[in-house]
Structure formats: structure tokens, C-alpha cells
Nucleic acid binder design. Structure first.
Lengths: 102, 102
DNA sequence: CTGTTACATAACTGGAGGGTTATCTACCCA
DNA sequence: TGGGTAGATAACCCTCCAGTTATGTAACAG
């Protein structure tokens, strides 16, 4: 699952879509509006996000509203948390170095 | 930069390499050992990780030791942190629901 | 100088990604 | 029934990616 999650997050259009969805659910046309890109292109991005479990889709007449589904983001964050010690250690070293220079 | 970071993390081999590097620096051959994959394949993965800034490489005679460079991981975590509220809110709702069922 | 170890590079292949245009489907409305 | 709107699907581009084998290169060991 991490594969699909990280792959989905690797595209700036898709990250922007997720960011937009934090403001609430949105239709495909609404999501497409900010981008200089055809509607089918956006539909493809949405399919990628859906397969990765990052969004869920509803039905409202012809509209297919998208909602954020943050669980995979939680998993990704959890994976990354393993490495937190590393950059924290690095910053502690840097701090110590800077302190020594004064 | 997030593009390259997430793209690099989307591959399980590369994530395993990063995990290995948390135990300390390692040569290409050492990193390649656990995988049923040719050495050039590993070299390619390392190049991807290096371009994403996730590892740095040294020189020790013929060996090219790799070290973890966690800064991009920190950036990625930071980006993901924006969404933390969403899954936390969802879990709070779930908790409330479960409580109501008792 | 020779050989060996450690790694990089080149050239190729199959398949996936991101984009396009054109078309199809589903639903609402008059 | 017909038309318009929201969105999905198809077919096709080109590029990048992940792997392969074969070969090249840099540094040590005798």
C-alpha cells in the first residue's frame, strides 16, 4: 500500500488536489478548474488517488464528489516517523557545532 | 523536491535500502546483497535516491559508501503533517461512535 | 604489469505514467 | 423525446522507469 500512496503523492497535481480537498468535498469539474489540463487528465489523477485509497467518491446526480480519505497518509507518516531520529540527531549536531563557533 | 522524494519512496527496494542505512553506512555490494537483483539495478536505485537527496556517497578506495541523508524525509513528513488533523478527526469521530454503541 | 574487487555506464526491452482528442454514458430538465 | 451537463472511457502519443546483459573504469594486491 505504501507503494501506491507514495507514487500518488509524487505528482504535484495530485498533491494540489488533496490540498484542495482539505477544504471540503468537491466535484471533478471543481477540482479540474485550477489546472491548465483537460478533464480526462484530472479523471486519471482521481483514479490514481482512489486506487491508492486517498480519496473516496460519492454520487450526487451527475456529479461524483470526491472526499479526502486520510488513512494512507497516516500510514505514510508512520513509516516516515521511523527516520525522525535521524534528522533530529543531525540538527542536534549542527546546533552543537554552531554553539562551538561562538 | 517533494516530487523526487515521494517518487523515490514509492519503490519497496529503495525503502528497504533506506531502512538498511539507518543501521549505518554501507557499500553498494552490501546494500545489494539482500535483493534478488543485479548490481546495476541497485546502482540505479542508488542514483535515484542520491538525486532525491536521500543519500550521500563517499569514497573509500574502490568502495562508495552510502549514508542516509534524512532532510528530504523531514520535508515529506512536514508536508504530510498538514493532513494529520484529518485522520485524527476521523478517529475521534470513530471513538465517539463506538462509545455511543456501548 | 597483472589480476581482482567494487562499482559505473551503455544499450536494450517491456511496461507504466501523464498527457492529448474524440467519443460514450448517465443524469437532469423542458 | 430531445438537449445539455458531468464525468468516464478509448485510443493513441511520448517519456520515464525498472530490470537485464555486457562492458568499462578505478583502485588495491601480488
Amino acid at each position: 500500500m505504501l507503494d501506491a500512496t507514495f507514487a500518488a503523492l509524487a505528482d504535484p497535481t495530485r498533491r494540489a488536489i488533496l490540498a484542495r480537498l482539505t477544504e471540503g468535498e468537491a466535484s471533478v469539474t471543481e477540482l479540474a478548474a485550477p489546472f491548465a489540463m483537460s478533464q480526462p487528465a484530472i479523471s486519471k489523477h482521481l483514479k490514481v488517488l482512489e486506487k491508492a485509497g486517498l480519496i473516496t467518491r460519492g454520487r450526487d446526480a451527475q456529479r461524483r464528489p470526491c472526499r479526502l480519505a486520510a488513512e494512507p497518509l497516516r500510514e505514510a507518516t508512520e513509516w516516515l516517523a521511523t527516520y525522525r531520529d535521524y534528522w533530529e540527531a543531525r540538527y542536534r549536531k549542527l546546533d552543537a557545532l554552531l554553539e562551538g563557533m561562538e
